[in-house]
Design a protein around this nucleic acid. Structure first.
Lengths: 260, 260
DNA sequence: CGAGAGGTTGAAACGAGTCAATCTGGGTGG
DNA sequence: CCACCCAGATTGACTCGTTTCAACCTCTCG
């Protein structure tokens, strides 16, 4: 037997996300890989899944960002969750059979189709996977709850800070963020749709975040000089992510001390 | 064999809620009834389940109202979901093992304990029930999404109207609301905690709802002269409840016509 | 080099919050 | 049986955060 450095499979981010919370057998991993159907690329601001249509498949995000959005006639759209690579955008459609919100690409994105029948099969073959998938849907609910807190109670600054904290943590889990920087190609209008703010006010809030040295957002990249400080400003903790990643980061070592 | 008019079981509301969406075999109903553990009564504003504690049971609401709440230091609490009789307050703890929010009694309430082990057993014995329970957790997520829309995008008036529409619909499913009235013993401060508003502003919004003839709230009772009008004011539809109950109500018959 | 999407800024309007006082109704104890 | 009490509801005046509207700037890409 040889140890082979396997090429990162399409579902690498999904596996990272799952392994963060559950042990997976090699069999289960193979089964998960086999479940992936068509892969396609979608452009930013494209509707990936329309609301209220009968569905017989779910969609796995491989690359880019998706958003789940609901629209009100007068008031524009509210994005109720952002999906990062490794997320199923609509795993709940396995049970609900249709979506109450539409799924929109927020950036150029690559998505894979997963037939509900195939999910059915692997859950029969690997009952533990059924629990893992159920877990994923409850994780979505936990994210929604935290967003409700943001939308209902946090002022603009900590609302944006909390969103950045969440994305930093979730992207870290799938290997797409560092403690002090990550790529985030969202427009300020899209951020506003997530935060229940106007793009104008997002702009002012981004500026304030920068002025307070909490985060810098430029050209699709977020830089966080002190993640703990950002988390404190947002009154944010990762506990609702049910992750096994460390919940706190060491304060950056005293650089002055090193120099001295 | 005799047909017995069985006394309404404790879990009558749960059964109504489930039967609204899924067919249930008599066996499955018996199994569900058997799963109920201790029943206890809790006073209003009592913590029923504390956040972040390890859990080996879930809690079923039999009577009264519960709320799931998260608290921010400066900004008070945000209630992220209201539970009506027949709801599990923390079915997701079956998978998550602890809660990210605390469960609080909003009125005097009766709750029953359901051991996770017992759930495990009935899901093995009746695999369809596993799907039903999973469905319930995805329904919670759908409620959260609609609340995000309210909190993020609806102005105070339609936000309150939407909450009333939702409660009217959910209470109707379990036999606790009429088309034009239902009991709702929440204080204006509690409503504010749900809506992301202050109690003062809830008060003004309640008045406006009354002045516009959309709803009257007094002494723990809500009267809705025209449910369709209230739903229009809130831009609300029951589609996210995934209920089989009729989604629209006939306009009240012309009473003048009857008199004539 | 032009065009367009997205970012930035200012001024004014407005919805909701804050603070504080007053009212009300239901429950309680003397 | 009634005076008292108190949580909750109500109201007014003022403040503040966010929106709105509108203009202008700055990239990036063809």
């Amino acid at each position: 037997m040889r140890t082979v450095i396997a090429p990162a499979p399409l579902i690498a981010p999904l596996l990272l996300k799952l392994k963060d919370r559950h042990a997976l057998d090699p069999d289960e991993i193979v089964a998960l890989e086999a479940v992936i159907g068509d892969v396609r690329e979608v452009a930013a601001e494209t509707v990936v899944i329309e609301a209220d249509c009968p569905l017989d498949r779910s969609t796995l995000l491989l690359d880019g960002l998706l958003g789940r959005a609901k629209t009100l006639n007068g008031a524009g759209r509210q994005i109720v969750e952002i999906h990062v690579p490794g997320d199923f955008a609509d795993l709940h459609s396995f049970l609900l059979k249709r979506l109450d919100s539409r799924v929109v690409a927020l950036t150029t994105a690559r998505v894979a189709t997963v037939a509900h029948g195939a999910l059915e099969d692997i859950m029969v073959a690997f009952p533990r996977l059924a629990r893992v998938l159920w877990f994923l849907t409850t994780l979505d609910a936990a994210l929604h709850r935290e967003w409700e807190v943001s939308l209902g109670r946090r002022p603009a600054l900590s609302r944006l800070a909390a969103l950045l904290c969440e994305l930093q943590a979730r992207l870290t889990i799938v290997g797409l963020a560092d403690e002090d920087r990550f790529v985030l190609r969202l427009t300020q209008a899209q951020l506003g749709d997530c935060l229940g703010l106007t793009s104008v006010h997002v702009n002012r809030t981004v500026r304030e975040l920068r002025e307070r040295n909490l985060a810098e957002m430029r050209r699709g990249e977020v830089r966080v000089p002190d993640l703990n400080a950002l988390r404190e400003a947002a009154e944010w903790t990762p506990s609702y992510l049910y992750t096994t990643m460390p919940h706190t980061f060491p304060r950056s070592p005293a650089i002055a001390g090193v120099a001295a």
